[in-house]
Structure formats: C-alpha cells, structure tokens
Design a protein around this nucleic acid. Structure first.
Lengths: 198, 198
DNA sequence: CTGCTTTTATGATTCAGGTCATATTCTCCC
DNA sequence: GGGAGAATATGACCTGAATCATAAAAGCAG
C-alpha cells in the first residue's frame, strides 16, 4: 500500500462507490491507479453464459488494476464494489511520476505484483488440474496465510459466501457446498453456524 | 529483457543446461535472477498423480523466476530446460542492486511482471470457466499476439506439441487433439502436416 | 413480527471430458 | 534405409462435476 497522503500529494482523488457499482470494465483502457480506502472491491470476468470468475478481492490498503497500467494493455477484467467503498484514484500520468520520483514506492509496487503473480501461478495450476476439495483448500490456505495472515487451526473465519468461493475457484455453488461438507467430515475445515473456519 | 552486458557487469554468469535439466524446483528458495540466452525453459508444476501444468515457456531474452525473488516467497513451480539452453544467472543480491541503481531496468521488470499478470489473469479465468476449444484458441491468440507478435490469419505456426498445449491449458492430449480438429473444421485454425496454424 | 431476499442444502439426472486401449504416422539417429 | 521412440489419431467407456429442481434456513428491512 502507498501512503494516502503521498497519493493525495500527487493529485489522487477520493471517490465513493455504492455496492454493485462498476469502477471499470473488461476491455477498457487503463487510465487510473486505484487503492482501496474502505469497503471491498472485486475484479471479475463473466463468460459467455454469464458465469462469474473472481480474479481477486481487494480491501483496505490494497491497490488493484495496476498491471494494465504498466503493461499498456486493456483491462482483463471488471472492477466492482462488493460493499459500499471508497477508493483513491490517481491518473496514470501522475502514478508513473510517483513511481519514478519515489523508488521505494516503485519497489513496493513491484513486490505487490510479484506476490499477486505468485498467487495466480498457484491458482492457475490448481484450477487446471485438481479436484474441487483441493482447490478450495488451496484458496482458503492462501487467504489465511497471505491475505489475512492468521495462524492456528480453524483460526481463520472465512468471510466469503459459498457462491464467492465458487467464483474464485471456478466451481459451482452446489459443488462448493458439497465439497466443504466433505472437507468438514475429513477434519480439514470447521463449519459453525454455516460459517467456514480453516 | 535486460542488456546482457549490463547483467555481466553486475556479476551474472552464463550457464549451460541440457534438455531436461532442472534449474530449480517448486518449494525452493529463490536465490537468482535468470534470463534466457538461447534455447527454451519451461516452468511447470506436477500434481499428485503426475499431471503436468506448464506455467510458461521462456525463450531468448526473456527472464523468469523473478516474482519469488521480489516477493520473498518460495518458487511456486519448477524450471526445466525444454531444449539445450544457456541462461544468465544473477544472484538475488546483485539483481536488487541492479534494480535500485538502474530505474529504467526496474521499470522494465515491473512491466514484464505486469504483462505476465495480464496473461495469467486471462488464463485463469479462461481455464476455470470455458470449454476446451475456447481455452485453446485463447492461448494460441495470446501467444500469437503477445509472444510472437504475428499478424494475419494462419500466419502463426504453433511450435508446441499437442501435449504441451494440453499442459498449458490443463486439458488432456486426446482432448486437445479432438478440439483442434474440430477447430479446423470450423475454420478457426489450420492443420498442415500436423502443424497447427492460427 | 412478517414478508422478502439471500444463502445454504440436497436429491436426481445428464453429459463433457477424462481414461483406457490401440493404431498410425513422423522423426531422427545409427 | 530401417528401427525405435515420440507424436498424433480414434474409438469405447466411465465418471465426477454441472445442471436442474426444490426446499429449508438465515438475514434483514419495514
């Protein structure tokens, strides 16, 4: 995350979105850098028959949508507010200025990209070749370890609906429901009041 | 790609590998930066029952294995020489020195990561939610447009075996064979002397 | 509290892609 | 040029996740 004041110094604007609002769409040109101030933003794709795939969910302090900015390509996915949310928006031009004038920030961004690439590498291999239960565990473990940084058995309370879990793993809700139940039987996860714990 | 002489100035060593050699393995700590001089290197994973997934194939001038270096995580995949190959190897320490002392190179690396993230974003959504033919076309189009930068119908000669295509898309050989034939019927690809053209 | 929406749950059925077996064609190297 | 291994090809069958339908529980607004 980049310091809020630094972003503001470089001309960032704070913008509010309501749940369900779209910030940008797949195929559009990348014009801005975004960092979440409050709420949650998801990046997603819809395939021909409307099935959603969630590329990632971003919360306070996390930035998103930088890759197309840096790679000069169109957005590979949409961005949508999952809850009411505020984000800092910084124009591409000013973002690049910020990067060049501030090597530490640049390095931080590079690191963020590297981490995200690490996650994607895991997920793409996982999704391509593993059975549902495995996929679900992997994403839970990833979220637990790298996003929420929780330690200890069943210490991570999963705040995702079964549907979101399905959209993150490329499965269907019913499959996720059945798989999580099976995982509970195997002692891999706990389900309390319908909430998943890992 | 980073200028070879610059890499050598920073202490890079040129190393040769024979077809089949492994440069590093999944789970190992990332100690070096690599850039291909000649030949081809693939990064891959094997799942429990030995099925391979190819994360990417890297040829002359392309670097690989940077993300774990920058994100301070273990390698998410193995690296293996597909053909006899030479690579430049630069220690993590010197690589980071190079980055900080040379902003232009740093920016280039960031851009590379961003591009790769773009590819992964496409592939992960694709693999998760599309049928075989669609997946294959996507990867072919990606390779055509972004890797080999070819234009024109059937101008891109696919130099991958059906097996490699399968490993890149998470499908099975037989499925790829059947799907490519079907794609040929539909006029989406050409097959001449068993070679695919897109 | 009540009605409405969202989320979770579960059974029945279908079917695409995996699996298995076997064949053919290429490639390439001695 | 001939033989071995790799790559491509094809048919038959099977299986597990998607699909479809329907219900029940939880959350929530008024």
């Amino acid at each position: 995350m980049i310091d809020e004041n630094l972003l503001l110094d470089f001309g960032a604007k704070k913008i509010s979105f309501s749940k369900g609002d779209q910030l940008f769409r797949e195929g559009e040109s990348a014009l801005n850098f975004y960092q979440v101030v409050s709420g949650e933003i998801k990046m997603n794709n819809y395939n021909e028959d409307g099935k959603e795939f969630i590329q990632g969910i971003f919360a306070m302090g996390q930035s998103f949508g930088e890759p197309p900015l840096l790679a000069n390509v169109k957005y590979p996915a949409n961005a949508e507010a999952i809850s009411d949310a505020e984000v800092l928006q910084l124009s591409k031009e000013n973002f690049l200025k910020l990067l060049t004038s501030n090597p530490a920030v640049h390095l931080k961004i590079t690191e963020t990209l590297a981490k995200r690439l690490f996650y994607k590498a895991i997920m793409v291999s996982e999704i391509s070749s593993q059975e549902p239960e495995h996929r679900i565990l992997r994403i839970l473990d990833y979220l637990k370890k790298y996003v929420h940084k929780v330690e200890g058995k069943f210490a991570y309370r999963v705040d995702l609906t079964r549907q979101q879990l399905a959209d993150l793993t490329g499965l269907r809700v019913e499959t996720v429901i059945r798989a999580t139940k099976s995982l509970e039987k195997k002692g891999e996860v706990q389900i309390k009041k319908r909430k998943l714990y890992r």
